[in-house]
Design a protein around this nucleic acid. Structure first.
Lengths: 158, 158
DNA sequence: CCCGTAAAGTTGAAATATGAATTAACGCGC
DNA sequence: GCGCGTTAATTCATATTTCAACTTTACGGG
């Protein structure tokens, strides 16, 4: 069992690193969200647009979209319903598997994406990317990659 | 205006760094949340317990707590109500400013904190801290610190 | 002292998230 | 072809978050 006395508490340095990571991730999300607001999109909306935009035929199976956007099927289902009402995507049934559905980017969704993407990239640069020296960014990526892998292996269903 | 042709799109490297950061922060939050579940706490609950535990007299003004946990006053208010119902904190009125309230850790809250903290630290180590070489962690912290500062300056009210 | 304005915090309704239960279709082994 | 466990996706109920409106107290000038 883990008792107080044998707990390997975080050192000061570790604390600071941890807290900083935490703060950056939360503040950053807030900022990006704020920057998307004028376009009537949330981070979640945007991420789905990105995924669909990059996909073959601008369409993805619900399950795959859920996996790649790291959300539960339930959440995605609601999300897509909202975006469908907003005219950004539509659902299309799947030939090969009649249980399945595609989320498909509409023309409007595609237009929205093209219109918003430059601003979003600008935002990501301004608040994140451009604040690192090139080599730091690479160091960040390479240090973080194993963590991402570890977490992807570890995680359950969401 | 920002048009497509003059948009400084992210390079491949930048993309990867950005995506990795994004994935890590989301997966990590999920994992920590999951690890707290057996103790009946959410990340949010836990963060509030931490803040109160470390504070003078184990109490903080609502506003200060909202600021340090990066959430809106409204959200915090609801959150504290829930935690109050759970017996972890209580509200106490403030002498010097009759508009103000303190959120105060109860005995039960304090006990909970002491019981859960070791497990949470273990979790943070396992899924984050211990996955870096010491020098990488320090590099991470130092690269991220300016970003955090930038975001704190930039941010509005939440 | 009396404004007007700002700050601390709460509240309630609407939006979104979560998790369990549900429905329908697959596909494998027999 | 039939059952049975599995997968895809949605739905329903509940919990949380957000947003704007509101209450109460503070504070600075005339």
């Amino acid at each position: 069992m883990t008792t107080d006395s044998d707990t390997p508490w975080l050192t000061d340095q570790e604390q600071r690193a941890w807290r900083t990571h935490l703060d950056v991730s939360r503040l950053l999300m807030h900022q990006l969200e704020r920057d998307l607001q004028p376009f009537g999109l949330t981070n979640n909306d945007y991420e789905i647009l990105v995924n669909l935009s990059e996909a073959e035929d601008r369409r993805l199976r619900m399950s795959d979209l859920a996996t790649s956007t790291l959300q539960s099927k339930s959440r995605l289902s609601h999300q897509i319903t909202r975006m469908e009402n907003a005219g950004l995507v539509r659902r299309e049934s799947c030939e090969s598997d009649r249980r399945g559905l595609y989320a498909v980017l509409t023309e409007e969704g595609w237009d929205t994406m093209r219109r918003v993407a430059p601003h979003h990239v600008e935002s990501v640069r301004k608040h994140f990317i451009d604040l690192f020296a090139t080599e730091d960014l690479e160091a960040l990526r390479s240090a973080l990659t194993p963590v991402a892998e570890h977490l992807r292996e570890t995680r359950g269903s969401l």
